[in-house]
Amino acid sequence: MIDVITPGLETSVQDYPGRIGFWNQGFPPSGPFDAWSFRLANLLVGNPVGAAGLECQYIGPTLRFGEATVIAITGADMAATLDGTPVLLWQSVAVTAGQVLKMGPAKAGTRAYIAIAGGIDTVPWLGSRSTFHKAGVGGLDGSALKKDSRIPVAYTSGTPGRSVKPDCRPVFSTDKRWEIEVVPGPDDDWIDAAGQERFLGSDWKLSGKSDRTGFRLDGPQWTFTAKAYDKLPENGSEPSNIIDHGYPLGAINLAGQTPIILVSDGPSMGGFINPYTVPSAAFWKLGQSRPGDIYRFKAVSVEEAQALRRRQDAICSMDSLA
């Protein structure tokens, strides 16, 4: 067991790739925002890449370990200490029974990941331990960690002293600006040429009104093709309205004039257009940014997006450990 002394800001149990196979019932996958850092944390402690760990957001938790184990912290730097001694990121570290891991606010990046040898052993729900807060299911009793929560762990032995090679770690923006890849579609044909140029050529600010279901963006106005106006009434009368259809995860969903990136706990269907989609290999950048940060979008083809994914999958392997 791990005892939660302070929970941090919405620290939750997540696994990778999350709750897959229920999109047609409306269940999102949940799972870690930055699956690159998450998977490497698991490999460091000897777990399969998908084992359940903790996702810490903005401010990390303080935890007491009930038994000796091996842990690794990756992602954002939250100035972790173990009984007062700084813990190096991107390394597997031995922990003795009773030691206290204390984490603070994120300095670089936004989300940190804690992997524990053996993985977190909460009861899976629909095949996954990932927390889906809004529905109150998965994870630890369907919610983020709370003060005095106890986290079950399937302890196994791990190897301390492993580290991720420096060139295999994601590099976080230090100037609050991010270049995010997007694949045009599925509904890019609803946006006129000027609107497409404006989308790719403008700064988009991540709004404070963002959560695990969607990242809202503030930026210029959208303009549409004739298709958005010349349509049957069942589409809905606003230009961004379309007959309800399935949403890709990562879709940039246009509700009226507000683009919302549909992230890990997002809706599976609805009646707004999705002119662009953020490919899976760029999700870690969303997870490591925070409200106020600026996005610039860069169009890539389906094939380029798939190549980026393959490259990232290859990095999330034992070959990246030293």
Binding site: E234, I243, P248, G250, T277, P279, S280, L308
Partner: peptide
């Protein structure tokens, strides 16, 4: 229509019509 690196959206029509829904569910 593509949706990023791992989705394909197949549009069968642009109206609300039961035949279209039967086809969508039949294809699934």
């Amino acid at each position: 229509k593509p949706g990023g690196d791992r989705y394909l959206l197949i549009e069968l029509g642009d109206e609300l019509n039961l035949a279209l829904n039967f086809t969508a569910n039949g294809l699934a």
